Structure formats: C-alpha cells, structure tokens
Amino acid sequence: MAAQKVREIMTTAPVAVGPQTSVVEVARLMRDEDIGAVLVAQNEELRGLVTDRDLVVRVMCAGGNIEARAVADACSKQLVSLSPDDDISRAAELMREHSVRRLPVIEEGRPVGIVSLGDLAVERDTDSALADISASEPNE
C-alpha cells in the first residue's frame, strides 16, 4: 500500500545547526553526512533551511571572506513547512506552489524531519527517472 502521510516518507532526525554556524562548517557537514539540506534552528525553533545550492548562490558567488560568513546569511528564511500528519499530496502541492524541492516537517513547534522531491518521486512513481536517481548511491 502506498504511503499516505508525510511521516511515512520523510527523512527523520534532520541535521540542524545554529544560525551562527560557519557556512564552511555547514558545507563540510553536508559532505560528511551526504545530505543537500540542513535546518537552521535556535532553541529547537526552526529559523531557516539551507541547501547546498544556497551556499553556492548566496555565499560563494558573493565573494569576500567565506570563512567569516554564518549560515544565517545563506539560509531561506521564508519557510513553508508541513506536519508529519499531512497527506503527501499536500507536500507535492506546496512544493509546486512555492517552487521548492524540500520542506521541513514540524511537530509541536519543533523540526522532526524533511521531505524532499526525491522522497515523493520514490513513493509516487518508483519507475520514474527521478525515483531512480533519488534511490541510487551518491557520487563520491
């Protein structure tokens, strides 16, 4: 039976950092954990989400002393989020409406997961190219 709720497909225990964490440290964390997004939280409250693309576009391309930049400078602050009990169709709808590929999952005010476009692809159409890519081993 196909998953119906976000909690069935989301990545649990998302990696989170504080807003003052260095972007270089965040990039290394992404590399070491083999992930493309990190939540930015303070006192268990979600403050933003930063992707590998955000680091490139908002930090590296801006130049300057990258070592001195905090992740708060790079993260998306206008977040759209879901509850673990939302239907996966709601996740797809929000991704389409807001042109995002990842959505934080919030429960009782705390981040508890992330659902990605790849998660939806694997669940909805296991034969699609995106599902194949999402399910494959990462590049080294």
Rank of each mutant, 00 (worst) to 15 (best):
E108I: 09
L94P: 00
D127I: 15
P104M: 04
V71E: 03
L49I: 12
A41L: 04
N65D: 13
R110C: 08
A129W: 15
V105H: 00
S128V: 11
R96A: 05
I35H: 05
A121Q: 06
T21D: 10
L55R: 00
V17Y: 03
R110W: 07
A13K: 13
L39W: 02
A92I: 04
M60N: 11
I66G: 02
A91L: 04
I133A: 15
A13M: 11
V40C: 03
S83N: 11
R7Q: 09
A92P: 03
G113L: 02
P104W: 00
K77E: 10
V122Q: 13
L39K: 01
L46E: 06
D32W: 07
S134R: 13
M60G: 09
R124L: 13
M95S: 01
V17E: 04
N65S: 14
G109R: 04
E123P: 10
R31V: 08
V71T: 06
S22K: 10
D127P: 15
I133E: 12
P111W: 09
E8C: 10
R53G: 12
E97I: 01
V115R: 05
S22R: 09
T21E: 08
A129P: 11
N139H: 15
S89V: 08
G64V: 04
A16C: 13
T12Y: 09
A92K: 03
V100T: 03
C61D: 13
G64Y: 06
Q78G: 13
V100K: 00
S99I: 02
G48R: 00
R69G: 07
L79E: 00
D85I: 05
E97V: 02
L94W: 00
A129S: 14
V50A: 07
G118F: 04
V112C: 09
T126D: 15
E67K: 10
T21H: 09
R53S: 14
A91I: 02
R53P: 09
T21F: 02
S134G: 15
R58H: 09
E108C: 09
D34E: 15
T51D: 05
M30G: 02
I88A: 03
V122S: 13
D34K: 15
I133V: 15
V105M: 04
R96V: 01
D85M: 12
V57Y: 09
V112N: 06
A91V: 00
G64N: 05
D132S: 15
I114H: 00
R31S: 10
D54Y: 03
Q20A: 12
D87E: 13
L120S: 01
C75A: 14
R7L: 12
D73Y: 15
L117N: 09
V115L: 12
D52A: 07
D132F: 14
E140Q: 14
L55A: 04
L94Q: 03
I66Y: 05
D54L: 01
M95F: 02
I9N: 02
S81R: 10
